[in-house]
Design a protein around this nucleic acid. Structure first.
Lengths: 286, 286
DNA sequence: AAGTTCATATCGGTTTTTCCGATGGTATCT
DNA sequence: AGATACCATCGGAAAAACCGATATGAACTT
């Protein structure tokens, strides 16, 4: 069975208006067209939709039940049309952002909420990759935008700009860890205990005591290990404040917390779509 | 914009098969029809859906994004067709059951779950009404089935049958209520404390102490009042067991708990549909 | 490198559907 | 009873869906 959108629209409009003629006027078609469309739809469905015994047609019980289904079809139909219109207008079908694990940012939640409101049809994808891979994914077009620790220089085909907000990285240990008892622990105190390190964080020279350090591939796992008291760790401040504020304490080591600049990067070869451009500007605007 | 179901189906099938010809074979149409349908759809949508540079057409990014929307339209379309088929086959569009407040029955939960599985397209409506109104609603066709306390006789146009399972009504008071401390309270003990009564329960003669009794229009409110210790109440056993088992105690008054027969009633003038007949039989079969 | 195969695009022509204006019948209101 | 507004039906015009045949191109074989 195959129901034409014209018939469905005629039915829905007639049900809404309570009149075939009024529906025809609103749809810009002739009355006979609407009448025949509904009659054909009734044949196709095998059910009478309207009771025509009185002057104005009134929905039958079956018609009332099927009207809901018809509305669903038309709503899905409209969504398709809207999505196609956006795509035809140059909107990218999806936006991929790759975030360096060091700066994976639930802190951008508000921005993403705004993105969702502004571009509801957009498919959004978030990748996490290690520093070098961020550039590779952006360069090959797999991702449109990247967020990573600011670099002194970038390849010529990569555009970059520094985000106003810097990433805050602190040193943390569990509340019951010996380090938590010290007022101002120094580097030698840190060296006395096990370090918990991100094992994708390759830029840094291995510190003393590296033989005893534990590592994990994400800050979340690292934080879990710190909460259990396995050692101390460098962690993004927002992550601790949101998920482990009462179980970890920040260590007041001189020179900490660090505040690292973050860059947004993009490929000059691939033009950003409207949503990508908006997100780029939005990230820089803060 | 108006997208014909033929085009959408051709697009979805072609995307699934990765081939226009294969889609045409599966749809029972000629290859040129599918090709033209998709070409027209691309014109209507304003975007290219397939990349035709290679032998087999491959979805563009936009096509991949829109395919999801198209599938939603087709799914809604299918649901409409299925619902219409059921209605055309004699299925009632909705089933209304009216339950006497005395026996409102979440206890029939399993039966309703089964009804939902068996008739997923059915619109189910549950009304609650006072004894006499149950018969009125069934008689006028507003409800197809009724559940109420068994009556000695019914009007001739009303069919009735007794449900195998009887309604269990017990006497309850809060755990901290003085009555809860008595091993076997008698009627005189009950009379010494406030009674909580259903105020639609008009058949019973007002007992002694009626001036002090509190009432509520539903067993749920009544049970709340009992939990707060305001007095003792007649309550359906299943209701207490499910929602207040640890806060109320049953009073071992001689003659209680009562076990009342429940009748299913229906109108002889209105034929029951398949779902109604099934539910009727299912209620009686236990 | 040429030939084979299998895919899609395109083109006429036929069939089907959609749409309109006109007409007639019927319920509702004055 | 008449006026009015509504719906069903009819015949013809316009649009579309559909098919078979054919051209063209990509991948694969020899």
């Amino acid at each position: 069975m195959n129901f034409s959108p014209e018939s469905l629209q005629a039915f829905a409009e007639a049900a809404a208006q309570g009149s075939f003629s009024a529906a025809a006027r609103r749809l810009g078609k002739s009355q006979s067209t609407v009448s025949e469309a509904i009659a054909n739809l009734e044949i196709d469905l095998g059910v009478a939709l309207f009771d025509r015994s009185s002057r104005q047609p009134v929905l039958t019980e079956a018609g009332r039940a099927l009207l809901g289904r018809v509305d669903e079809v038309l709503a899905a139909h409209d969504r398709l049309g809207r999505a196609a219109g956006l795509l035809a207008g140059g909107m990218e079908p999806r936006l991929t952002v790759v975030v360096s694990d060091t700066y994976q940012s639930v802190q951008y939640e508000a921005t993403l909420t705004e993105l969702d409101q502004r571009y509801p049809e957009l498919e959004f994808e978030c990748l996490v990759a290690e520093h070098g891979d961020v550039l590779a994914l952006v360069r090959q077009g797999r991702a449109q935008l990247g967020l990573m620790a600011a670099q002194p220089a970038y390849p010529p085909d990569i555009g970059a700009a520094t985000v106003a907000e810097r990433a805050q990285i602190g040193l943390y240990a569990a509340s019951h860890h010996p380090l938590a008892a010290l007022a101002t622990p120094g580097d030698d105190d840190l060296a006395a205990y096990r370090a918990l390190r991100l094992n994708t964080y390759l830029d840094d020279a291995a510190p003393s005591g590296a033989g005893r350090c534990w590592s994990a591939p994400s800050y979340l796992l690292l934080m879990e290990m710190a909460v259990f008291g396995f050692g101390w760790a460098e962690l993004p401040r927002w992550l601790v404040e949101r998920f482990a504020a009462e179980r970890l304490v920040e260590l007041a080591v001189p020179g900490w917390p660090k505040s690292l600049p973050v860059d947004v990067v993009w490929s000059r070869a691939h033009r950003l779509g409207p949503a990508g451009s908006w997100l780029q500007q939005r990230l820089l605007a803060r």
